[in-house]
Nucleic acid binder design. Structure first.
Lengths: 339, 339
DNA sequence: CCGCCTTATTGAAAGGTTTCATTGACGTCG
DNA sequence: CGACGTCAATGAAACCTTTCAATAAGGCGG
């Protein structure tokens, strides 16, 4: 880092180059209006002084930045990084930069990021919220375009892009029932997550429609939706006496499913013979597991791209109307349920 | 978004509350110096006007932000998200926010992010660079603390935290040689990545030390270090006539190894009997694959945390000295190489 | 050779916050 | 009752850039 000297400003550059500060600014912003000779002088001066434009001052004057941000629930979950890539693609096309923020499923962190971003006057914020009905979101959307990703609010106060989690849960369990299973586990948590609740709801629906008994669906709760949670749930599942033990499991996401798969394999059991497994999200690792995982596919990149495009419309189109896009998920059957 | 009205400033709040703007600022920054009654009035006024502090102006005056950024090579690679979590932990302890930027292995994107961040006057930048010797990095480190993650420069112009990739590559191949393999593939690319080159170098070293023939190590190049690249390399590998085909593969990272594993399994072959596989990084998915993957472990979170701490020292300690921390990787043997 | 037009450059103002030296009010002590 | 000390509130200055109306210089046609 530089020693003590304050970093050079346009005024310093102007003095060094022997021109006015307006000219320096022109070199920066409208180089075509400056004669070659002058521009050269100014560029030399900038190089000598190590001038770095101050983005804060620039933005203060300009009032806006060319910046988008995505506040994601879990940066370690490939589902969200894929969504982020979709957002990134759209942002790049519009020559905007994207910052990623990891709330790590913590409402406090999420709030801090949202506040900071709105104070930073970013063009817009995409967020997969811990709680889509948080009052802070309503507060922020008054000033800054906000689009909700992977969740939907049924008032129409936000744009959103999400998959139909109820339908997805239903698909998964219908598939298991089709394959003859009548004792099925639903594995996931915490229930504070809408994703967990809705996928469960879909699972229940499928059971009901198939006329299964009330207790056909066994809910095994987990603390989170990571790998370790899946393994731990696996242990508990294996601990259940064989005659009562479910013959199939539907996991709230693929990380949990992969953890479960691993635990079951380690215990010497076979998937799908001893336990059939369905995941959710269809991340790349699902299809690539050595027992490829049946999963409910969400269009991950598409989700991100759609959300980003809605955001850009909200940010630039004066008569923008909020829209809630819902994607219908799709079952991808693989060996973890099919012999 | 709000209608047409410009968003309220401290001046507007002051007028609304019937106090001076200095008082509003005090409410914001030193609430204890303001009488309860006045503070209440001001807070009411803020709420009525929907005041949102302008971070640009604040920073312009303050000169600094409480912001760190990590420019990562590939947000879709769990290795880097784990590193990011380590950075995040350290940042959180110091009450700093962390922004993540995905360069996606593109030097142009990396440059754009680095420039933007330094103009934004962030406290510091962590970066896993496409090329650690890029002149732009040297330029930026003159003004903004920069720490290199997962790479090292051997001049001492930057702090860095990285694992010893040569040693890692050597470990991997020594392990394979120990298990009796004499025809080994090294799978990875592009060679522009230091990680790819150095792990290869380590592999060569191991071969040489074991006295294997020059052509014992077959280099199979890939375009990148993703899943798909591993699968594609798998096809090529399988295409080699059995008697010349390597009996083991060392992959430049776990994503490639998992792709390879999948392709080999799909072709009806068995790991490790038909092909032993070693990966690199030991991401969670490696141990969790149904044929658990032998891998070279890097202390991922530790790497991030160490880098972040070096950065914080550089940012706050006037007589900071650059240090290059190198971690020694460790082989984790699992079933993909051990029957 | 003058007036006009074009092109290049100028300098002041604005943008919203924080800081700090100063003022004002009020209570207390001598 | 006056001087002093404390606490609260004030408002001007500074941070750095961009914009824009105004000026200066230079070239051309008449």
């Amino acid at each position: 880092m530089a020693g003590g000297a304050r970093s050079a400003s346009v005024v310093d550059v102007a003095a060094e180059a022997g021109v006015s500060l307006g000219t320096v600014s022109n070199v920066l912003n409208r180089p075509e209006r400056v004669s070659d000779k002058t521009r050269f002088k100014v560029e030399q001066a900038m190089a000598r002084l190590g001038f770095v434009r101050n983005e804060s001052a620039r933005q203060l004057r300009a009032g806006q930045s060319r910046l988008l941000a995505y506040v994601m629930l879990d940066v370690a979950n490939p589902f969200f990084t894929d969504v982020a890539q979709g957002i990134d693609a759209a942002a790049t096309e519009h020559e905007l930069s994207l910052f990623l923020c990891n709330s790590a499923n913590d409402a406090g962190r999420e709030a801090a990021y949202l506040t900071h971003l709105s104070q930073q006057r970013v063009q817009g914020i995409l967020v997969t919220p811990v709680d889509p009905y948080s009052p802070l979101l309503e507060e922020i959307v008054k000033h800054t375009p906000v689009v909700i990703v992977d969740r939907t609010r049924n008032d129409h106060r936000f744009c959103s892009a999400a998959a139909d989690d109820v339908a997805g849960g239903r698909l998964a369990v219908e598939h298991l029932i089709d394959r003859g299973h009548t004792r099925i586990a639903y594995i996931g948590g915490p229930p504070s997550l809408g994703q967990v609740r809705e996928r469960h709801e879909g699972a229940l629906l499928a059971c009901r429609e198939a006329g299964l008994a009330e207790d056909a669906l066994l809910h095994i709760g987990t603390d989170g939706l990571g790998f370790a949670d899946g393994r731990e749930a696996g242990e508990r599942l294996i601990g259940i006496p064989a005659k009562r033990r479910p013959t199939a499991a539907f996991c709230a996401n693929d990380l949990v499913a992969l953890g479960l798969l691993q635990q079951v394999s380690l215990s010497g059991r076979t998937v799908p013979d001893d336990l059939a497994i369905v995941g959710f999200d269809d991340i790349d690792f699902a299809g690539a597991a050595a027992v490829p995982l049946t999963s409910v596919r969400q269009p991950r990149r598409e989700l991100g791209r759609t959300a980003a495009e809605a955001l850009l419309d909200e940010a630039s189109n004066p008569d923008h109307e909020h829209r809630q896009v819902t994607f219908t998920p799709e079952l991808v059957a693989r060996r973890s349920t099919v012999t």
